[in-house]
């Protein structure tokens, strides 16, 4: 039974990891930038959900309708005003810029909200569905998983069917060629970053009932998202989706059968193992370096 319980919890939390990681992977694919502020963007989503609930009494899942457009615009503007200016700089400068931006975000949050962790409690925060065999499924986690599935499907349709989505994919495949084909790659970068921000913030909002909300809450998710992106093949959005579930499962299983103290260690060891054995990721194409 422990196995099935872990299986279910692993898949549910993995869905949220997947959502955050897909945002990072999209940014990576289109812009070829590792976004070190990704965790802070999740933190932003957590606080937005928290305050929309405590001040305006809007349910965290409903508040996504407000959070998503706002964070998209936020990401879009950040890309246009800061990141666009280092697009042709060495990757170290880009990384540092996002590090600096992340520090500004987390430490502004520290000044604004203090370091006291906040807890978002709704009427159903701690309720769960009991399945036969003593397995329980947390309602907020189940809801986040369902919403994640919807968002993933929407993202998939957007990338596969819409003009902008196709242009994004073309830019991701080959930036120069896309530019030659008349795609406005600079606009694509801004859209990708906006979408990445939106996805990170949504993931943050959805786990706001499950995790403590503090200015540095996104930190651990940054590293997890990186692990997932590398696992799925840097830049592969679908790979990130599957990678998220795998990491969720690996964590749940190691908490159950090893100890929860070591579950994060296991994730990072997995990360190094992938780099050593299959750096193109599980789903990346094997190609020339």
């Amino acid at each position: 039974m422990l196995f099935f319980q872990s299986l279910i919890s692993g898949i549910l939390i993995g869905g949220v990891y997947a959502l955050a990681a897909m945002g990072m992977s999209l940014v990576f694919g289109v812009m070829n930038i590792s976004n070190f502020a990704h965790g802070e963007l999740m933190m932003l989503g957590m606080y937005m959900a928290y305050y929309l609930f405590t001040l305006l009494n809007i349910d965290p899942f409903l508040s996504l309708l407000i959070i998503m457009p706002l964070t998209f615009v936020f990401g879009y503007v950040i890309e246009k005003t800061m990141i666009d200016r280092v697009m042709d700089h060495p990757s170290e400068n880009q990384i540092l810029l996002t590090v600096g931006f992340g520090l500004i975000m987390s430490n502004s949050a520290l000044l604004a909200f203090t370091s006291d962790p906040k807890i978002l409690t709704t009427s159903y925060s701690s309720s769960s569905i009991a399945l036969p065999g003593g397995i329980s499924v947390s309602i907020p986690m189940l809801l986040s998983f369902l919403v994640t599935c919807i968002l993933t499907a929407a993202l998939y349709l957007f990338l596969a069917k819409s003009r902008t989505g196709m242009a994004l994919r073309a830019t991701s495949q080959n930036r120069e060629a896309a530019q030659l084909m008349g795609i406005n790659v600079s606009r694509m970068s801004a859209i990708a970053f906006g979408t990445g921000t939106l996805l990170a913030a949504s993931a943050g909002a959805m786990i706001a009932q499950t995790y403590y909300i503090d200015p540095f809450a996104g930190h651990i998710f940054l590293l997890k998202s990186f692990t997932i992106c590398v696992l799925g093949g840097l830049g592969s959005v679908i790979g990130a989706g599957i990678g998220g579930i795998i990491i969720g499962l690996a964590e749940a299983m190691s908490s159950a059968y090893l100890s929860s103290d070591w579950k994060d260690v296991l994730v990072f060891i997995l990360f190094l193992a992938i780099l050593l054995l299959r750096p193109q990721g599980l789903f990346g194409k094997k190609g020339e370096q």
Partner: peptide, 28 residues
Amino acid sequence: TIVFRLRGHYFALASIAVAEIVRLTVLN
């Protein structure tokens, strides 16, 4: 040994992962 065979962002990412492994191991 693990990451210097790779180019690009991998070293930056892996160096954080190693540091986190060290930190969490010490903590546990």
